[in-house]
Amino acid sequence: MVTESSHSQLTRRSFLIHSTQALIGLATISVPDLCLAKIPEKRTLSLYHARAQKALTLTYANGKQYNPKALARINSFLRDYQTGQVHRIDPKLLDILWAVQREIGSKGVFKVVSAFRSPQTNRQLRRAKSGVASHSLHMEGRAVDIQFSGADLGQIRRCAMDLQTGGVGFYPKSNFVHLDSGDYRTW
Results as ranks from 00 to 15, higher is better:
Thr57Asn: 00
Thr83Met: 04
Ser8Asn: 11
Ile24Pro: 02
Tyr66Arg: 08
Lys92Pro: 00
Leu56Gln: 04
Gln124Thr: 09
Gln82Gly: 00
Val31Met: 12
Ala52Met: 12
Ile104Met: 10
Gly105Val: 05
Ser114Tyr: 06
Pro68Lys: 11
Ala27Lys: 13
Ser114Val: 02
Ala72Asn: 01
Gln9Ala: 10
Ala37Thr: 06
Leu36Ser: 08
Lys69Glu: 14
Ser14Ile: 06
Thr121Arg: 09
Gln9Thr: 06
Ile29Gly: 02
Pro91Trp: 11
Thr11Ile: 09
Leu58Trp: 06
His49Asn: 12
Val100Ser: 00
Leu26Met: 12
Ser114Arg: 15
Leu125Phe: 09
Val109Asn: 03
Ile17Gln: 05
His18Met: 08
Ala37Gly: 15
Tyr60Phe: 15
Lys42Gln: 10
Arg79Gln: 15
Gly84Pro: 08
Leu58Asn: 00
Leu26His: 10
Ala50His: 13
Gly25Lys: 14
Ala61His: 02
Gln120Gly: 02
Glu41His: 07
Trp98Val: 02
Ser46Glu: 13
Thr44Asn: 04
Ala99Phe: 09
Leu78Tyr: 03
Arg88Ser: 14
His49Arg: 07
Leu56Cys: 01
Pro119Tyr: 05
Leu125Ala: 06
Asn67Val: 05
Ser14Gly: 13
Ile89Asn: 04
Leu34Ser: 10
Phe116Asp: 07
Gly63Asn: 05
Val113Phe: 04
Phe116Leu: 05
Val112Phe: 08
Pro68Asp: 04
Ala115Asn: 02
Pro32Gln: 14
Thr3Trp: 03
Ser30Gly: 10
Gln65Glu: 13
Leu45Val: 08
Thr121Tyr: 05
His7Tyr: 08
Asn67Tyr: 09
Lys38Trp: 11
Lys69Val: 10
Trp98Ala: 03
Arg79Asn: 05
Phe77Trp: 07
Val113Lys: 09
Pro119Asn: 09
Lys38Thr: 04
